[in-house]
Amino acid sequence: MKLNRTTLRTVDILKLVSKRPDGITLDEICERLGLPKTSAYDIVTTLVQTGMIHVAREQKQRYHIGLTAYRIGINYTNNLDFISVIEPVLKAFAREVGKTVFFGVRSEGEIIYICKFEPENPIITTATVGSKNPLYCTSLGKAILAFEEEDVAGSVMDRLKFQQKTGRTIVSREALEAELETVREKGYALDARELEEHMECVGAPVFGQDGTVIGAISVSSLYKPAEDYEALGRLVHKKALELSRLLGYLGKF
């Protein structure tokens, strides 16, 4: 089957723009994708007119992912086929650990909670399906950011605005990068009362068939000094790997 070259170029441009939260110039698009400037300009102009790409008219125009593309993404998220695969596993996991289990995805510098599964006697958590929290102070966010492609993670961190949520919140890029290195070594992330003083959370990344991180799962509960959160982290990591395998991931992490 012969694939249309212009369509392929359009998809490549959308993928590239979506990975650059800070925007990207036409020259950078042409350089990264090896496209003639006239061809790239025609495609980008069409994408701007359809709302798939937004242009920030600065000294040098920078292109960002547009509202139409975002809405398509939201519709996709709302109809994710893989949710039906992971849902029964996470429901059972919530009962097994007796804690609230979340699945979330990254949106710019925030985590969006897509699913929430509770045990028989759940504690009250402020996070609800559809709500957002910063990447840098959530176990879900750190788990995803640690395993993103390096250029994507760097671009995201360039735009983070750190705010002190509790006395334990990470408030600098340097501290976050050090934390992410630890996350990569262990395979799981901790929110050690960084978002809410009374809550402790453990998260681990979930990978898709192509090896990219598609989201993360976390376990949340009231903080207990006697709780072994490292052991819980290893358990969450194991469950995230199980989910990744179900979704066709064949690599290691």
Rank of each mutant, 00 (worst) to 15 (best):
Glu185Met: 11
Ala231Gln: 14
Tyr223Lys: 13
Phe253Ala: 03
Tyr229Arg: 13
Ile74Tyr: 05
Phe147Ser: 00
Pro119Cys: 05
Phe207Asn: 06
Leu243Ser: 04
Pro119Ile: 05
Ile170Lys: 07
Thr46Tyr: 04
Ile112Val: 14
Ala189Met: 05
Tyr136Gln: 07
Ile124Val: 11
Leu247Tyr: 03
Lys161Gly: 05
Val183Trp: 00
Tyr70Phe: 05
Leu243Asn: 05
Pro134Asn: 06
His64Val: 01
Leu195Gln: 14
Val17Cys: 00
Ser155Glu: 15
Glu110Tyr: 01
Val206Leu: 05
Glu230Arg: 10
Phe103Asp: 03
Thr126Val: 10
Leu14Glu: 00
Val11Gly: 05
Asp27Pro: 01
Thr38Pro: 06
Ser218Cys: 05
Lys224Thr: 11
Val129Lys: 12
Pro119Lys: 07
Phe102Asn: 12
Ile72Gly: 14
Val236Ala: 03
Thr77Tyr: 11
Glu118Lys: 15
Leu190Pro: 03
Val129Pro: 12
Lys37Val: 14
Lys132Leu: 09
Lys186Val: 07
Ile112Trp: 11
Arg62Ser: 14
Ile74His: 06
Gly208Cys: 10
Asp22Cys: 09
Gly34Ala: 04
Ala189Pro: 02
Glu150Trp: 14
Pro21Gly: 08
Met157Phe: 02
Ile72Thr: 12
Lys15Phe: 15
Val11Arg: 13
Val183Gln: 01
Thr100Pro: 01
Met1Leu: 07
Cys201Glu: 03
Gly130Asp: 09
Thr7Ser: 13
Leu232Lys: 08
Gly51Cys: 07
Ile83Met: 13
Ser39Ile: 12
Asp210Ser: 15
Leu180Asn: 12
Leu47Ser: 07
Lys161Ile: 11
Ala127Gly: 02
Lys116Glu: 00
Val105Met: 15
Leu180Lys: 03
Leu140Trp: 11
Thr126Glu: 00
Glu108Phe: 10
Lys165Arg: 15
Gln164Tyr: 01
Val17Pro: 00
Asp22Glu: 04
Gly66His: 10
Lys252Met: 09
Ser107Asn: 05
Leu135Asp: 03
Cys115Glu: 09
Ser244Trp: 00
Ser220Gln: 12
Met157Trp: 04
Lys186Thr: 04
Lys224Ala: 13
Gly73Gln: 06
Glu194Tyr: 04
Leu14Ile: 07
Ala127Lys: 01
Leu90Phe: 12
Phe103Glu: 03
Glu31Gly: 02
Ile72His: 08
Pro205His: 10
Gly141Phe: 08
Tyr76Asn: 06
Ala231Met: 11
Ala56Ser: 13
Lys91Thr: 14
Leu241Glu: 08
Gly130His: 08
Phe93Thr: 02
Gly73Asp: 03
Lys15Ser: 00
Glu196Gln: 10
Glu227Asn: 08
Ser155Ala: 15
Ala143His: 10
Ile112Gln: 04
Leu180Ile: 11
Phe147Asn: 02
Lys99Trp: 09
Arg184Val: 02
Thr100His: 01
Gly167Ala: 14
Asp191Tyr: 12
Tyr113Thr: 13
Ile29Leu: 10
Lys186Met: 09
Ile74Leu: 12
Val89Gln: 12
Tyr63Thr: 05
Asp27Met: 08
Ile43Ser: 09
Val89Tyr: 09
Thr10Glu: 15
Leu190Ser: 06
Glu110Lys: 13
Ala189Thr: 00
Cys137Arg: 09
Gly66Ser: 08
Ala189Phe: 04
Val129Ala: 13
Thr182Gln: 15
Pro21Asn: 08
Gln49Asp: 15
Gly208Gln: 05
Ile29Trp: 10
Glu148Thr: 00
Gly51Gln: 03
Arg245Asn: 06
Glu242Ile: 07
Arg57Tyr: 15
Gly208Phe: 00
Val11Thr: 09
Ile29His: 06
Leu3Glu: 01
